[in-house]
Simulated assay, not measured.
Amino acid sequence: MKKLIMNKIKKEVNEGCFFHVDNHERMYIGKKDKTGIVISIFDLSGDIRRFEINEQILCEDIILFQQSSDDRYVFVYSKLHEYKVKVFSADGKEQSVFSLPSGVSCCLLDEKQNLWAGLSDEGIYDDENPSEQSLLCFTLDGQLKETHIDQQLSEIYAPVVDDCYALAEKDGLIYMLYYSYTVIAAFDETDVRRVWIVSDKEYSGVYDQLAISDDGFWICKDEHSLSLIPADVSLPIQEVKCCGPDGRELSVQQLKLTSNAIYAISDSGIYKRDIRGGKANE
């Protein structure tokens, strides 16, 4: 078992909050109040901003809230079994609203301001998706962009996507973790660049996050269970325990993986471990 020593960066946080960190290390913490959701945005500079959303939903129904590269705010959520996107200007005015298809399992806002939506088996094999696309790409005004990821995977005889688990971005490429078995594909808007088929079948299951480092592929299950797929995917997957500076295992409530770091919310605060550049040592 691998132990990951993490540093505490913030004191206690309310249990059940929405928690997200983007690749620019902005941290988003959402809490429900009487009128909707209040998102606190913590910047690396130390600035704290608050953004209010007038939607009566639970924090667990927020799929994504993130600031775009041109300072707009992208809010993806589910309500009454529908998946919706709202895009707000920097001053909080609603700019666009559009719906996503049923069966959305994960979303990613990339550096080019595309919103990628991965579909579960429910969405892939839905009657409203006759081409059985597993991954959709939208502009922030709701226009669907043409992609051929599934077709290209088929052309190179990669396993078909039966369920899209998680999406990540690293160095200009999008990475998709999917089933059948455990497969990771790397691609840009036009081409599939590489596919990894994980040989360790004992760890097959439903995952909800993915991050890439020199060590390999970090994967998260049920928001709090962390594992590492070695860069040599023929090796066994390692179970990882998040620990505080004293080496004691943290009681993790939520994990968030970015291209730079791993974040953990525990009952004693928020912890962080950098994974960019060198190795994440035991």
Score class of each variant (00 low, 15 high):
residue 266 S to P: 06
residue 65 F to V: 15
residue 25 E to C: 08
residue 38 V to A: 12
residue 59 C to H: 04
residue 97 V to G: 05
residue 249 E to I: 06
residue 139 T to W: 01
residue 160 V to M: 12
residue 174 I to Y: 02
residue 239 E to Q: 02
residue 282 E to T: 04
residue 122 E to L: 09
residue 149 I to V: 13
residue 252 V to D: 06
residue 113 Q to N: 15
residue 206 V to G: 11
residue 153 L to E: 10
residue 280 A to T: 09
residue 36 G to L: 04
residue 145 K to Y: 12
residue 75 F to Q: 09
residue 100 L to S: 13
residue 67 Q to H: 05
residue 3 K to I: 01
residue 55 E to D: 12
residue 125 Y to I: 10
residue 129 N to D: 12
residue 63 I to H: 08
residue 56 Q to S: 15
residue 5 I to H: 10
residue 10 K to L: 14
residue 121 D to Y: 07
residue 156 I to Y: 08
residue 72 R to N: 15
residue 140 L to P: 09
residue 132 E to I: 01
residue 189 E to P: 02
residue 10 K to D: 13
residue 170 K to D: 15
residue 39 I to C: 08
residue 15 E to W: 00
residue 181 Y to F: 14
residue 85 V to G: 06
residue 154 S to Y: 08
residue 179 Y to F: 09
residue 2 K to V: 12
residue 230 P to A: 00
residue 252 V to L: 01
residue 237 I to M: 10
residue 49 R to V: 15
residue 41 I to C: 13
residue 202 E to D: 14
residue 50 R to F: 05
residue 139 T to F: 03
residue 50 R to P: 05
residue 184 I to P: 03
residue 251 S to P: 01
residue 62 I to R: 04
residue 278 G to L: 02
residue 118 G to D: 06
residue 4 L to C: 07
residue 261 A to W: 09
residue 38 V to L: 13
residue 124 I to P: 06
residue 177 L to K: 00
residue 9 I to R: 04
residue 131 S to N: 10
residue 79 K to C: 14
residue 165 Y to S: 06
residue 177 L to W: 06
residue 133 Q to A: 11
residue 220 C to K: 00
residue 199 S to K: 15
residue 159 P to M: 07
residue 156 I to E: 09
residue 236 P to G: 04
residue 51 F to A: 15
residue 271 Y to D: 04
residue 89 S to N: 05
residue 167 L to W: 04
residue 237 I to G: 06
residue 164 C to T: 02
residue 190 T to L: 11
residue 50 R to V: 14
residue 242 C to W: 06
residue 235 L to W: 11
residue 6 M to E: 08
residue 250 L to K: 00
residue 33 D to T: 02
residue 151 Q to H: 11
residue 200 D to G: 05
residue 211 A to D: 03
residue 262 I to N: 02
residue 250 L to I: 01
residue 216 G to Y: 11
residue 109 L to M: 09
residue 222 D to I: 00
residue 86 K to G: 13
residue 157 Y to R: 10
residue 169 E to S: 13
residue 163 D to E: 10
residue 18 F to M: 09
residue 13 V to C: 05
residue 5 I to S: 11
residue 227 S to N: 03
residue 149 I to A: 08
residue 176 M to E: 10
residue 55 E to S: 11
residue 276 R to N: 14
residue 123 G to I: 05
residue 20 H to F: 14
residue 63 I to R: 08
residue 265 I to W: 00
residue 123 G to T: 01
residue 100 L to W: 07
residue 190 T to M: 10
residue 118 G to S: 11
residue 272 K to Q: 13
residue 234 S to L: 11
residue 19 F to V: 09
residue 11 K to F: 06
residue 209 Q to F: 02
residue 57 I to Y: 03
residue 100 L to R: 07
